[in-house]
Design a protein around this nucleic acid. Structure first.
Length: 488
RNA sequence: GGCGCCAUCGUCUAGUCUGGCCCAGGACACCACGCUUUCAAUGUGGGAACACGGGUUCGAAUCCCGUUGGCGCUACCA
């Protein structure tokens, strides 16, 4: 097992496979990855599956899937291996047990036999009397020999860290500077549970050390537990890594982003037709700034510019509107074929099939211009694939008399009937229709508005020329005919 | 309750270390106007913030102290 001082940056993303990959955890992964790559170091995926009760089948795969989608590529991980494996804590149990035993032997930890019921009662009482809640040290000064015998005889026990009663522990955080904690108020943390599995604190300390992780970059919620871990490093005779505690990603109400703020499943964003590059761009700018007014960054630029000393200390609200704005920009800059490819599943939703390349290309234009994300495709182009359904009076431009509208539509249908199918391109249609409008003084709004409504059935819609072009001659004529019927 | 973190427009932020160039800049959102056959896109413009109170200083968003507020942690969860 490698056990020397890290010579290069190694960061890790250490999620628990207990649910869907969360926006906040992907954000943490992103910063870890950016930092590692900026420093030409390694980024490691480690699965923290030590809570058997909260495990969710498939969760690990989803995490990996999300990382892949974002191309936040890890250099070592459970599925690809690496020199510091295994990378799943459930496969490292013996290690944790061993180090816990070592801590007991050195009397930096002790066996505790307190039943969960006793602990619960204790806490309830502490809460009622408004005393600081925490373990009361009931088993702390038990005779070590005696305790060992009890364990040998099969009595249920856990192992707790023996936090010094005096002094203070200082966390020197890369983002926050020095943070001091009085040891007296730190709880005797559980290290090994009665089922023999480690808690987060033991497992992460052991793994971060054994895997040569440095720095540890994680969310601010871990700051209060860092002194406990520092004490553990000291007891084990290890040099602790550097720590950086990132601000929290917040919901609208400024509390930690969670399910009650709506879905936090990052794969849901993929299913909603967001682009991974846009999300990364947006996420990178949350809690960090590149010291320029530039807004758009490629992954390479992000890696190049990223640093921990320009990370903010305060939490940042996740703002879907700005994400949408980023996504719209990324979507617009996509090549036509890529737009078509990504829009396809959504086109199928509205029953669009057998479209010609030409049609697809024009649809991609509409999508690029109007969609913030691909899930909006059905709303944007759906009218092309269903019979328009609207009130007849919608056909009239402003206060135009229906009889006049009828006249215009009749003129249009005559014009288009004489136009060969092959000339049904957007530019050509615009050309011939506008020419007639001008020559016969038909009025732009009075003519084009009814045409638009006839073709789309909508008050808000793309222009009539591109619509007619996509629809083709037959459908265009039939929709105008239908409008004329409505007015007659 | 205890411990800790944080504090600039509604939101993301620049400016804070190294006080004056800041009666505070940018972006999203919002509003108005322009373009226009609607919407969208786009262009132009607008409203919008240094949490509060004391210091220090010729001068404070920036330094110091206090207050308030928000958040996090306080499990045999992570």
């Amino acid at each position: 097992m490698p056990n020397k001082k890290p010579t290069k940056v190694r960061t890790r993303f250490a999620p628990s496979p207990t649910g869907d990959p969360h926006i906040g955890s992907i954000w943490t992964a992103l910063f870890n990855w950016l930092y590692a790559k900026h420093h030409h170091g390694n980024f490691i995926l480690r699965i923290e599956d030590t809570d058997q009760t909260r495990l969710r089948p498939g969760a690990e795969n989803k995490i990996i899937e999300a990382l892949r989608w974002f191309q936040i590529n890890y250099d070592e991980g459970p599925d690809i291996g690496g020199p510091y494996g295994p990378y799943r804590q459930s496969e490292r149990l013996i290690l944790y047990k061993d180090y816990a035993d070592r801590l007991v032997t050195s009397e930096d930890a002790y066996y505790c036999f307190c039943a969960p019921e006793r602990l619960q009662k204790l806490r309830l009482e502490q809460e009622k009397t408004k005393k600081p809640v925490g373990y009361d040290g009931h088993c702390r000064s038990l005779n070590a020999q005696e305790s060992f015998k009890r364990v040998q005889s099969g009595e249920l026990s856990i192992i707790r860290l023996k936090i010094p009663k005096i002094g203070e522990t200082t966390v020197n955080d890369l983002i926050r500077g020095r943070v001091h904690f009085k040891n007296a108020v730190i709880d005797d943390q559980v290290l090994l549970k009665s089922d023999g599995w480690p808690t987060y604190h033991l497992a992460s300390v052991v793994d971060d050390h054994l895997m040569n992780i440095d720095p540890v970059i994680r969310a601010e919620e871990w700051l209060p537990s860092t002194p406990k871990q520092l004490i553990m490093y000291k007891a084990l005779g290890w040099t602790p890594p550097r720590f950086a505690h990132l601000p929290l990603i917040l919901g609208r109400d400024r509390s930690k982003l969670s399910k009650r703020h709506g879905s936090t499943d990052i794969l849901k964003f993929r299913d909603d037709g967001y682009l991974p590059g846009a999300i990364i761009n947006y996420l990178a700018l949350l809690g960090w700034n590149p010291k320029t007014s530039k807004e758009f960054f490629t992954r390479e630029e992000l890696i190049d510019k990223f640093d921990l000393n320009t990370v903010n200390k305060s939490g940042a609200i996740f703002d879907n509107q700005k994400l949408d704005w980023f996504n719209a920009h990324y979507l617009k800059s996509l090549p036509t074929l890529e737009i078509i490819r990504l829009a396809k599943p959504y086109l199928e939703q509205v029953g669009a099939k057998n479209l010609t390349d030409n049609q697809l290309e024009q649809i991609s234009l509409l999508v690029a211009e109007r969609a913030k994300k691909f899930s909006e495709v059905p709303d944007i182009v759906g009218f092309l694939f269903r019979q328009p359904d609207y009130e007849a009076k919608l056909l009239n431009w402003k206060t135009t008399n229906p009889a006049v509208t009828l006249q215009k539509l009749k003129r249009l249908i005559k014009l288009l009937e004489s136009c060969p199918e092959s000339d049904f391109s957007e530019t050509n249609l615009e050309d011939i229709i506008k020419t007639v409008i001008n020559e016969e003084k038909l009025g732009v709004g009075e003519t084009l508005w009814p045409l638009r409504v006839a073709l789309t059935g909508l008050k808000e819609s793309p222009g009539p020329f591109i619509t007619a072009s996509i629809l083709g001659k037959t459908k265009t004529l039939s929709r105008i005919t239908q409008a004329i019927k409505k007015l007659s």
